[in-house]
Amino acid sequence: MIKKYNDKEVLKGISFEVKKGEILGFLGPNGAGKTTTMKIITGFMAPTKGKVEIDGKSMEKNALRIKRKIGYLTENNPLYDDMFVYDFLKFIARLKQIKDKKIEEEISRVEKACGLEDVILKPIGELSKGFRQRVGLAQALLGDPKVLILDEPTSGLDPNQIVEIRNLIKKIGKEKTVIFSTHILSEAKEVCDRILIIRQGEIVASGTPEELTAKSNKETLIYVKIKGNKEKVFSEIKKISELEKVKIKDKESNDIYGYEITPQEGKDIREKLSSTIMKNDWSILEFKKEEKSLEDVFRELTK
């Protein structure tokens, strides 16, 4: 899809496919085009060029039928504050053309799925942000849509609420197609089966969280905290072959330092390092291999 606002190209040709039972994460800095893409998928806007197809049917030609298959949680989750949660869900259920007989059943299903039992008879305006978000999610789940589009579902929630919503998404994602956007990397890594990184209206990387991490994992660091004379440790470690460089990262006390050791590319020097330490009778207080995180990948790609 390509989308132009006036003459500015917001989406410069984004193309992807999502399968059933897959959770796809949109990752990108603010203004990258995540929300625009979602607005197009849900039929709120049409793309300037290109099209959205669900089950082989295009939004352009079958708008009503396709919209019935989509549940959408919009960014910032706007709701009618003066409506009661129950009335709101009923209103949406009716507009989703759920049969009158099934509406009650359907509302109690999403009420349970989203944990709304305690607030169902309250006005939406009185709810906390976490509950609002759940109401938004419940609204999206009404009618059991095949595809769920969730625009930053966890933004503005406290850590407990975030975990709850994430678990909910994971649960839902088992049977449905979920596309969700976030700018929190750990979240994408934890929840998604596949991640698309978007920058300035283009997909700059895609793959499973592991693949993306592996991509720029050429550089491995070893962090080791050693108790022993600093100068001695330095000179002994430097003797190890296949070593690129060593530097002091932190200091705990006079003779306890943390060292960051960079091996030559593709080389694993952990064994050599440990035998050096043993030989000299130093104590190892910490030892870990540090890989480049998804955060680094993200920062590199979206800079």
């Binding site: 849900t42 708008a63 009503l64 919009t74 053309q97």
Partner: peptide, 14 residues
């Protein structure tokens, strides 16, 4: 202004 129009326009109604 509230953004609720987006909900309405993405529902399966004309």
């Amino acid at each position: 202004k509230n953004g609720t129009l987006e909900i309405l326009l993405t529902l399966p109604i004309k």
